[in-house]
Amino acid sequence: MDVKELETAVLQVQREAEDALGQVQDARALDEWRVRYLGKKSALSQVMRQMGTLPAEERPRAGEVVNRCRERLQAAWEAARTALSERLLAERLASERIDVTLPGRRQERGALHPSVRVIQEVEDIFLGMGFSIAEGPEVETDEYNFEKLNLPQDHPARDMQDTFYLTDTLLLRTHTSPMQVRTMERMRPQAPVKVIVPGRVYRRDEDDATHSHAFNQIEGLVVDEGIRMSDLKGVLEQFARAMFGPEQAVRLRPSFFPFTEPSAEVDVLCINCGGAGCRVCKETGWIEILGAGMVHPHVLDGAGYDSRRFNGFAFGMGVERIAMLKYGIEDIRHLYQNDLRLLRQFARPV
């Protein structure tokens, strides 16, 4: 055998190998091909082994021919392997396709009750203004619910709040205001007193769309030297902006509560129309959200803060009213019926 014959044999192998590679479809066939054409027992290896029979001067050239062929086949194999793995991956991805529009394994969140949402929101706003949160008994004494709030026995203003009595002296509190006195009595003589009081209250009212025999109130109280009615307005303005939006404004109107003097009803710009006038605000642009005033001197003195030295302001708001306004709930009873179709809407914002 001479170089020429060897070269012919190599080309023959190469052609055969390349043809075979074209037929390879899968990883196993490709591996077999590699063993057959590039392995130790391959035709090319056998040709290599015959090189010893060639004259010495022809061997370099023969080696070159064989190596070139091997390199070529090696490269072809690598290319085929890459192509094959790409194809297999593509096939796998295609076969693994799922319908991503089907629902996931949801972990449904529950929801806070809307009244509680309002309470927490209000609490957070006043905590940020340095108020603490106090809570008190729902079964109150006549003394704290009325007398210490400047509402003596047989005072006509007691008609403002029809009361559930339990005994001659015990009742279900009609407002969170008893905690004004309890808080001052606990704190005295420290100042300032800055506290809000959320809690359930009770009135002897027939339940209807706007009345409930039980509802939630949030009381606020600030007592210190030099507290002014303008501070009341300023604090409520901050609250209104945090609660209802930065464009908010508050309006005070004269009113009467036995435990504040001067007293005020407090309006904010209508949450629904922003003040333009709509059905919610009866075209006035304003909605009443709380009652407030300067703590009555009798209440201050009775709770141990000398009214000649200390002043204070107090306010009280109805939680359900705010929840109804804020969440568009039309009937207060919806807040107590606990229809899950309504409550679950509070698991996520709109």
């Binding site: 905590l127 800055k194 303008s230 300023g234 604090v235 303005e237």
Partner: peptide, 21 residues
Amino acid sequence: YEAIPSTLPFGATTAGVRTPS
């Protein structure tokens, strides 16, 4: 009442925190 301005109390600063309960 609209003659009453808006101010903030100028007394000592207090920290508002929730009780453990």
